[in-house]
Simulated scan of single mutants.
Amino acid sequence: MEALQSLFVPTGLVALAEIGDKTQLLALLLAARFRRPWPIIWGILVATVANHFAAGAVGKWVASFFSEATLSWILAASFLAVAAWMLIPDKLDDDEESHLKRYGPFLTTLIAFFIAEMGDKTQIATVMLAAQYEYFWLVIAGTTLGMMIANVPVVLAAHFSADKLPMTLIHRVSALCFVALALYAAWNAAKLSGWLG
């Protein structure tokens, strides 16, 4: 059961969190500029695996320093912070936009996505999810799958605009998912601390 949660919870959370995110806007921009979807999709995949592997490794490393109860309290607070962050929409920086065509579609996507993911909501979520779940590789597979679910349709339909989606609703649903994870982590922390009998 936990193995399935390690895969499907990260997949769903990251797919929702990625809608309207800076990296999804970047995927739209790259697809419009290069008009070559497959090198862009491969660039997104490689960049995401590398970035989320590093984030997951940090999550596992940090988890080793704390007791299970303390880690659950930290995760509860972190999930609440990400829930609040979900309500702030992302915008693509002008600097990122100006340097896109220099290296071709694959390398440009690889570099741009890896950099854009640094400190992004989905990377922070990957750190927290890897700290929470035992199955490291399933978490990385799930967060990567979530990124691909959100970004591949945008790349394949470059004329598709994120503005047509109910972004406020999507961000609120994502925030509620992170609040639910925070409540679960807090309940688990209280149980491990002996507060629930």
Rank of each mutant, 00 (worst) to 15 (best):
N188R: 15
T48I: 03
F114V: 01
A69Q: 12
L25Y: 08
L110Q: 02
G119M: 01
A63D: 10
I170H: 02
M128Q: 14
C177H: 05
A112M: 03
A130E: 01
M128D: 12
W42V: 15
A186E: 00
A57W: 09
A63V: 07
C177D: 05
A150F: 02
Q132S: 09
E68L: 14
L29V: 14
A175R: 03
L25G: 06
W42K: 11
N151S: 11
Y103P: 04
N51L: 10
T11H: 07
L169K: 08
L196G: 11
W42I: 09
F8A: 13
L45S: 01
M86S: 15
V82D: 01
A157Y: 12
A162E: 15
A50D: 11
P39G: 00
F53N: 06
K60V: 13
F136W: 00
L165K: 12
A57I: 08
F65V: 04
S174E: 08
H171T: 10
L30I: 11
V58R: 04
V179A: 10
A125Q: 00
V9G: 10
L138D: 07
I19F: 04
E97G: 07
Y103Q: 05
F114G: 13
L13I: 12
A190L: 15
P89H: 09
W195L: 15
L16C: 10
G56C: 10
E134G: 06
L25P: 06
L26I: 05
F34S: 02
P89C: 07
S72C: 04
A189C: 05
V155Y: 00
V155I: 13
E68R: 13
R172C: 11
Q123R: 00
P37I: 01
S72P: 07
A76N: 07
P39S: 03
S67P: 06
V155L: 02
S193K: 00
H159C: 04
L129K: 07
V179Y: 05
W42T: 14
N151W: 00
M1A: 12
A57G: 02
L107N: 03
P89M: 10
F65R: 08
G12A: 14
D120M: 03
L45A: 13
I115Y: 07
F160S: 01
D94C: 03
L4P: 00
D93W: 04
I74P: 06
A162Y: 09
T109Y: 05
M86I: 05
A131Y: 07
K91H: 13
H99M: 09
K60Y: 13
A50S: 15
T109W: 02
M167Y: 05
G43I: 01
L110V: 01
V14S: 00
A186K: 00
L107T: 14
F178S: 09
L29N: 08
V139T: 06
W187R: 11
N51T: 15
H52E: 00
I170F: 12
Q24I: 06
A54F: 12
H171C: 11
W38H: 12
S67W: 08
F34T: 03
D94S: 14
P89I: 02
R102G: 06
L169W: 13
A141C: 02
M167G: 13
A15F: 15
